[in-house]
Design a protein around this nucleic acid. Structure first.
Lengths: 177, 177
DNA sequence: GGTTGCATGTAAATGGTTACATGATTGT
DNA sequence: ACAATCATGTAACCATTTACATGCAACC
């Protein structure tokens, strides 16, 4: 599933500019399971326009440069339909954070403490955002939203319940040496 | 954190061939938060050897081609130490599965049912693998292992508790039309 | 006879990130 | 003043994936 398809998904819900699409991956309804930056979104929109899956209109704005607003076409909807009816590829997760904690022996206990506190704060922030969403949503969107809430809650709970154990174990090890 | 660093991490625990490294990302202790395939591991090992971060020895085997076993050097350990003491980059997650469910309106209820059952089975399998691990591990490894267990348990519970709701909502919608 | 596991590697293609380039407005 | 937000885009670079190339052993 490439950025082109992701853009089609975003545009199937409402017309957007490239900038607005990116915001939806950064902090909007797609943020907790997908990601895309400007450098991939703008070229994707260009290609989608060329192949007729989206249309583009320029919207004037007061004291701002024009906005290019993209709208999905019927052909684009068909392409999205085809894409979501494929067999999904396996999830791809890369967590440097977990990799580092895996080698906690190489880290200072104070550094680990800080990392875990930051992580907890991060999960709390995302949770807050997700929990603040309007719950009157199409069934699929609601399901995915609540999944995000469940996962972030579990992660937060894990750090709160077990974070100190890790730091404690390493402090003990240091004393023993 | 690139594949070179990941390989250093794997080799810091024990000497391995490229093939064995890959297995550890596929189903070993790194599988639930990192990934790497042959196409990135072999070139990474080549570069690591060239820069003196790992050594390579050929091991003969009965009725099999030689194995190239890599061992981390002191310089390599230092490089790993430096890497894990950086500020971690944000997690990267791409879930086509969640993207598809987000657009559940475009899917047949039976297809969703199948997808969720497959997912649940997948989580159950990973959970089983994680729970079967030896718990007598260095503190960091144990922490990351138990985190994986907590997350997969939460995901599995979510699908078991709410999977039918999604399918139910879509069936109702179909009746209404 | 086909599939899976063991075992290594390269080359081409894909895809995405990062850095650059530009510039007005709003808030601190 | 400075940072952040809005707004678009390109080009160079980087990393990874996929396909290819090879081959034996074990199992069903």
């Amino acid at each position: 599933m490439d950025v082109k398809t992701l853009c089609l998904g975003v545009l199937s819900r409402r017309d957007c500019s490239g900038y607005e699409i990116r915001k939806q991956f950064e902090e909007g309804p797609f943020a907790h399971f997908q990601d895309a930056g400007f450098g991939s979104i703008y070229p994707a929109l260009k290609k989608l326009t060329e192949s007729g899956l989206v249309n583009c209109r320029a919207e004037e704005q007061d004291s701002r440069p024009d906005k290019k607003v993209y709208a999905i076409t019927q052909k684009g909807r068909q392409a999205l339909f085809d894409a979501v009816n494929q067999q999904p590829a396996a999830d791809k997760l890369r967590s440097d954070f977990m990799f580092m904690l895996f080698f906690a022996d190489l880290l200072a206990p104070a550094a680990i403490d800080r990392m875990i506190a930051q992580r907890s704060a991060h999960h709390a922030k995302l949770l807050n955002r997700l929990e603040g969403c309007d719950r009157v949503l199409p069934a699929g969107e609601r399901f995915v939203l609540n999944y995000g809430i469940a996962i972030h809650r579990a992660a937060l709970a894990y750090f709160e319940d077990h974070g100190h154990e890790l730091v404690g174990a390493l402090l003990q090890k240091d004393v023993a040496e």
